[in-house]
Design a protein around this nucleic acid. Sequence first.
DNA 1: ATAACCTAAATTGGATCCAATATTCAATAA
DNA 2: TTATTGAATATTGGATCCAATTTAGGTTAT
Lengths: 219, 219
Amino acid sequence: MKLKSMDISATASASSIVFDALRKAIIEGQLEEGEPLRQDEIARLFNTSRIPVREAISRLEEQGLVKTQRYKGAVVAGLSPQETEEIFDLRALVEPEIIRNAVPKMSKEDLALAREKCAAFSASPDPMTWGDLNRDFHETLHGASDLKFFLEIAHNAIDRVERQIRAQLVMSNGMERAGREHFGILEACENGDAELAAKLTRDHIQGAKKSLLAHLSVK
Amino acid sequence: MKLKSMDISATASASSIVFDALRKAIIEGQLEEGEPLRQDEIARLFNTSRIPVREAISRLEEQGLVKTQRYKGAVVAGLSPQETEEIFDLRALVEPEIIRNAVPKMSKEDLALAREKCAAFSASPDPMTWGDLNRDFHETLHGASDLKFFLEIAHNAIDRVERQIRAQLVMSNGMERAGREHFGILEACENGDAELAAKLTRDHIQGAKKSLLAHLSVK
DNA sequence: ATAACCTAAATTGGATCCAATATTCAATAA
DNA sequence: TTATTGAATATTGGATCCAATTTAGGTTAT
């Protein structure tokens, strides 16, 4: 008799492990903008050689999360206010399309989960968790969509401004408004109103952009 | 006296050279979809070791141009009809925004150059050049825009379907229609009508998508 | 004291070597 | 004959070493 083929493997390559870890650290702001990424230091941290580290860094650069200069090394990429604005405009263009596509595909379970995430976000008292919970909610809504390239772009865009999103949430009203807007979007999804959900998503992103830019220009 | 700091360098790293060359070869269809990329073979071709080749391949994978499997290697990525359709939808969403942004920024020189490229495209009798000339025209129009992330996404999307675009051009009417539509877009730009230019750009892309998909479903 | 300069340390890019896994193909058993 | 096994080959992932370049620190001349 034949044995079932099972995917034991699952042992990711060293470069992927380093890539994921660095990516997470950059997105979550544990590595600050402009901070140099020393290959040797990172290699020691992960008990590997510099080869997989270099591969990870080159992939991160391809995603725009780090910038490298020959013989000078890589630093965590930052965004100018103009660039930040453009990323939010990009999100405001792409994410409504994702939602519009997702709404008719959402199952009862999807919606129940989204409602859960939405509630969890609004209920959380700990600012440290807001970024993750916000992401959770949006990704749950996006999940029903099958637009893989749109999703890829949206997630990459979100990654690049994740730090700003987190800052925006802790700004005056940021959290409260986001919570309100999330409920609005969720309700539109539950009612199967894709057009409204898309519009509210766009407003949500544009609103965040505006409050963020106002804050940046004040500083 | 101090010497002027001049950018003699310009000697790109080996991995970048390999990356650019492979990327070009894939986009232009010299490497066929599904064709495996052997690190050793490529390294020999470029007189380097496999290290820069691997870095190049990992960057190409990040761009979606190749797919790799652990210990099995990389192959040139292909697109299903659904994926092709989605990429065209993405282009139809993003590129009109680029044009809308670019139109008010176009100088006389930009427009003159665009008219030149447009004429060159329509006048070319050699199907082998159509892909490049088409790209030339569109990139000239895009050039006036300062939306760097939008441009990045549009160009990556175009790269991924460049082969299909070339196929579409040699299809019945493809070239003729593209030429006509290019003139329309150009005229709108010359008249400073950003809205019309954006709309025609969207139509141009959606039209290409439709004729391409019709052809795919027949085959 | 300050600026130019030169050497040493740090850092990156690449080459070569080794280990892990996959693939091929001949030998063998049913 | 055909399916299975297993060794040889091919191929990738990673470690270590070397070369090229940058950076830091100290020395000297003005």
